[in-house]
Design a protein around this nucleic acid. Structure first.
Lengths: 287, 287
DNA sequence: ATAAATATACTCAATTCGAGTATAAGGATC
DNA sequence: GATCCTTATACTCGAATTGAGTATATTTAT
């Protein structure tokens, strides 16, 4: 066994905003890569290094960020091994310094099957046939496929975004599987591929975010200072990928101390809605 | 700004078992350190490296492990920077190759305030006074302290184990804070210190595990092949740090497809209980 | 035989949840 | 100005879940 090994650390960022009812992710290279760069000796911490790279590459300044996952590539190249550390950041979309190959992309372009706000026909029509062929190859695959994609009457669980991507990868139904030399079982599922494992990291972010919004008020970072209850609902629906019952959503929110009224009203079509902001206690907790 | 930096990766393991109604963690150095070692070029992956170190240092072979958190030390020493990647593993306690300084330790020795299965007097008597002094120094500390330690009638949330440790560290109420040169605000809270930030990593593991058992059947790895419903309940209570209502617990478990009866009965004082095992579907999912 | 300990089975009210209906208040159209 | 469309806000109601309690059964120990 050889001794301790000098390695190289790569920082990768999933920066999410919600606008026009779509969750968007900040990308490079025309939507095929996430902001990323190596940890440098000038970086005071992993977080600081990540902020620095995102700012250098996209001009975007980050607020609160959260660690996602760390993985190492297999030690194949003698050039030295690399470790990737990924982070999730929530923000509001800005137009600053975009252009070039920097852009905000609707995350459902990469994972069309994850959006079930409209009736979901995609799984039945496109994914199920490929999975069925793959399932036939081994016994224990059946229940996994059913659980991930709600195949045999099982309920859809939005938190399983990562498991679904991993399953499609294993089943050879996404382009990255073919690129990595794995066997293919049919037509690829719709959805755009990304470089390296960036699409897998994005799936990790979606899973994490969907699990988090259920018990922590993180949407706070995604909304403007003032917003209506429907704005808040649409924002959560965009992330979760399914619609909510309006009355029940209001009851849930109003039963908490999350929001306070601003006293002003929003304009637009229909009856004007009260504007809210997040309560002082919630805002303090993030800082 | 200097370029990419060669670094050194350290793998740290929190290995948990439950025996005699206590959650135990596998330690080195008479309970003051967790198993750990550098990633080496012979290691095929981070997981493989971790398994290798735990086996070398403690003789223990691991089952399923899960990543906890990655952090970098500030880049102070010119000797090179180090990144620590921590993992959580669940297992059953074995006596193999213990001795030396390897031992299983009740995790509540490090976090006495986390055990609320018996009436919790510790917070009121010991922690609250120190926190009160610390809170007086700044305004926003009040609500944080109250939320973490259920001070002003707020409910106790067992998932906040990490937040509680971090708060005590900030407030200078654990020994590690004094060791690191931070200001102290009163007597230290009870609980044993560990080397470096190992106690913080252990707190991370507790938080993660407590959050996970609520929606995933992970206890599976902690119990023997056959067990009674009370065994299962006691195991979960040990991890969660509070007791459960027996009837409601039974109802919850029996309403799922988690377990199947073995047909045999346990012996002991009192009426013999049915023995159960985890259902085949659950076991398959872990493999 | 009796006590102590544990297992198992119900009961019951409070709360939460999912889904629906009804009414209010604005702008746009004719 | 009447009508329609759109959105906001407020209730209602039954089903399901939850928290807490009581009652009975079956064993070992004394």
């Amino acid at each position: 066994m050889s001794g301790a090994q000098p390695i190289h650390a790569e920082l990768i960022a999933v920066i999410v905003a919600v606008s026009d009812g779509a969750p968007r992710v900040l990308t490079l290279s025309d939507g095929t890569a996430l902001p990323a760069g190596p940890l440098e000796s000038g970086h005071r911490s992993l977080q600081a290094g990540l902020r620095n790279w995102v700012e250098r590459q996209t001009g975007h300044t980050l607020g609160h960020i959260e660690q996602l996952y760390t993985f190492a590539d297999p030690d194949r190249s003698r050039a030295g091994r690399s470790i990737s550390i990924s982070y999730l950041g929530l923000t509001r979309e800005t137009r600053t310094k975009l252009g070039g190959q920097v852009s905000w992309q609707d995350w459902y372009r990469y994972f069309p099957w994850e959006d079930r706000r409209a009736p979901a026909i995609l799984v039945e029509s496109t994914i199920k046939p490929g999975l069925t062929r793959w399932v036939d190859d081994a016994a224990d695959r059946q229940s996994r496929a059913a659980r991930c994609f709600a195949l045999d009457g099982a309920p859809w669980n939005e938190d399983l975004a990562l498991s679904r991507y991993e399953l499609l990868y294993e089943a050879g139904l996404v382009r990255e599987a073919a690129r990595d030399g794995r066997p293919v079982h049919g037509d690829f599922a719709p959805g755009i591929a990304m470089t390296a494992d960036h699409r897998r990291i994005l799936a990790t972010a979606i899973s994490r975010l969907r699990a988090t919004i259920k018990y922590r008020p993180v949407v706070f970072e995604l909304l403007p200072d003032q917003f209506t209850l429907l704005d808040l609902q649409r924002c959560i629906e965009a992330l979760a990928g399914h619609t909510l019952h309006k009355g029940n959503f209001r009851r849930l929110i109003e039963g908490q101390t999350l929001l306070e009224e601003t006293g002003t009203l929003a304009t637009g079509p229909g009856r004007p809605a009260k504007l809210y902001r997040f309560s002082a206690a919630i805002r303090a907790e993030r800082a």
